[in-house]
Each structure stands twice: as structure tokens, then as C-alpha cells.
Nucleic acid binder design. Structure first.
Length: 133
DNA sequence: ATAATGACTGGGG
DNA sequence: ACCCCAGCCATTA
């Protein structure tokens, strides 16, 4: 159950990830920190794993703290995600890691994100703007 | 209510 | 760089 009122943890994860701009990345821990607890990084990963198809959330822009793509049960996921990122201009080093100094998203504070969400809820569908994509 | 699970993380060896 | 381990956490595959 939610630790507090409002959107579930998963929903909040989606709200955050949706704001990561093209060509930028965020770490699981970073997303978790924005929401509340930096130690909930694993849960962020799980939330993305359970992301419904066609959810308009750039899940591929979330990588681990080492700048690498986290392995899953489906082996091909690595190259798949890497391809999506490279398509946006993200360059991988020989060790398979990206330079976080260069590509990591600056991030936003939770209150600001919440406000953006509220704005989108009241704004006419056609006039919504988005930072990512 | 409990145990299990997983796209994490930081620290050690 | 690589492998292992012990915390940590929301949700329930």
C-alpha cells in the first residue's frame, strides 16, 4: 500500500521518468531520490519492469549508477535499450558504460513535477507540452 | 499477515 | 575490471 496519500510509488516513478529529456539519462537511485527515498532504487527498476505497454514513458533513459544498462531475464534487452539511447545521441564507451558527467539529467524536485502533472490534468489535450520527447 | 521478488547500490576482496 | 554480499523497499509477477 502507498506510504502516503496520492499516487502510488509506481505512478510517481512514471511521472518522473516521463520528464527525462531525449539524449539524457537518469539512474534508478536518482529517480528514487526525487520521489523520496534514495534507497528505493530497486523498486524503481521494478516499476519500470511493470510499465504497461504504450505508456508514453521513456523507460530506456533509466540506467544504473555505474552508467551501464542493467541486465534482465531477457538477455536481448541490453542491446535493445542501448540502441534506443544511441538513436538519441547517447554514446557508450568501450566498457559499455555512458559518461554520466555528460549525459545525466539534472533532475527536478518532486514538488515541481507534481505541479507539472497538475497542469497537464487541467490543460486541454492538444496544448500539453512535455520536456521529454 | 508473511515471504518472495527484482531493470539497485555501495563496499570489499 | 570482476564477483560477492548485505542492506533496502514497494508490491504481489
Amino acid at each position: 500500500m502507498p506510504r502516503q496519500d496520492g499516487p502510488s510509488f509506481f505512478t510517481r516513478v512514471y511521472h518522473v521518468v516521463r520528464l527525462i529529456p531525449r539524449g539524457k539519462v537518469a539512474t534508478y537511485g536518482q529517480v528514487a531520490s526525487i520521489i523520496a527515498d534514495p534507497q528505493a532504487a530497486r523498486t524503481v527498476g521494478w516499476a519500470l519492469n511493470k510499465l504497461p505497454e504504450g505508456k508514453a514513458v521513456p523507460w530506456h533513459r533509466v540506467i544504473n549508477a555505474q552508467g551501464r544498462i542493467s541486465p534482465r531475464r531477457y538477455a536481448g534487452a541490453i542491446s535493445e535499450q542501448r540502441q534506443l539511447l544511441e538513436r538519441e545521441g547517447v554514446v557508450f564507451g568501450a566498457d559499455g558504460a555512458v559518461d554520466l558527467e555528460q549525459y545525466q539529467w539534472e533532475g527536478l524536485d518532486w514538488p515541481d513535477i507534481e505541479e507539472l502533472e497538475r497542469g497537464w490534468a487541467t490543460e486541454p489535450p492538444g496544448r500539453r507540452w512535455r520536456l521529454g520527447d
